[in-house]
Measured scan of single mutants.
Amino acid sequence: MGMPNRKYADGEVVMGRWPGSVLYYEVQVTSYDDASHLYTVKYKDGTELALKESDIRLQS
């Protein structure tokens, strides 16, 4: 078993793309699913969504 190939840690605050949009919002990573390679993130309004790594970026 190798290390999970994840870029962002639980609790890390990053920018997540809103689905169907080009806009990124501040989100907190809450979990990562090794099987689906999706991150569960929480937006400031409390919305929780699963995002692909390509829809997440570090805060500038």
Results as ranks from 00 to 15, higher is better:
1 M>R: 09
19 P>T: 04
19 P>D: 04
53 E>N: 04
2 G>M: 06
36 S>H: 08
31 S>V: 03
29 V>R: 00
18 W>Y: 08
28 Q>E: 12
22 V>T: 14
29 V>T: 01
43 Y>L: 14
50 A>P: 08
36 S>M: 10
34 D>V: 09
6 R>I: 04
57 R>A: 09
15 M>N: 04
16 G>F: 09
27 V>C: 15
40 T>W: 14
53 E>F: 05
28 Q>P: 00
32 Y>H: 02
58 L>D: 12
32 Y>D: 00
26 E>W: 11
60 S>I: 12
54 S>L: 07
7 K>N: 05
11 G>V: 01
18 W>D: 03
36 S>L: 11
39 Y>I: 01
47 T>G: 04
5 N>C: 14
45 D>C: 09
9 A>L: 11
31 S>E: 05
1 M>T: 15
32 Y>W: 09
22 V>I: 12
36 S>K: 11
52 K>G: 09
8 Y>D: 01
44 K>A: 11
11 G>T: 03
36 S>I: 05
46 G>H: 05
37 H>K: 14
1 M>I: 14
20 G>T: 04
25 Y>P: 01
8 Y>Q: 01
55 D>V: 02
13 V>N: 07
27 V>W: 03
36 S>G: 06
8 Y>V: 02
24 Y>Q: 02
34 D>R: 05
14 V>C: 04
34 D>E: 14
7 K>E: 04
5 N>W: 07
3 M>T: 15
31 S>L: 04
51 L>I: 10
11 G>M: 05
11 G>R: 03
42 K>A: 07
4 P>G: 15
46 G>I: 03
23 L>C: 14
54 S>Q: 11
11 G>Q: 04
27 V>T: 03
42 K>H: 06
47 T>V: 08
15 M>Y: 13
47 T>I: 09
38 L>F: 10
29 V>H: 00
15 M>E: 09
21 S>H: 06
7 K>D: 02
60 S>N: 12
12 E>P: 01
46 G>K: 04
57 R>H: 09
5 N>L: 12
40 T>A: 06
59 Q>M: 15
25 Y>M: 10
51 L>V: 06
48 E>Y: 14
25 Y>N: 04
39 Y>R: 00
26 E>H: 08
13 V>G: 03
35 A>G: 09
26 E>K: 11
16 G>V: 14
38 L>P: 00
22 V>K: 13
11 G>K: 04
12 E>W: 06
45 D>S: 05
38 L>R: 08
30 T>V: 15
28 Q>R: 13
33 D>M: 03
7 K>W: 04
45 D>Y: 03
35 A>I: 14
57 R>F: 11
5 N>Q: 13
29 V>C: 01
2 G>E: 14
4 P>E: 12
20 G>E: 06
19 P>Y: 06
33 D>A: 03
24 Y>S: 02
8 Y>K: 00
28 Q>K: 12
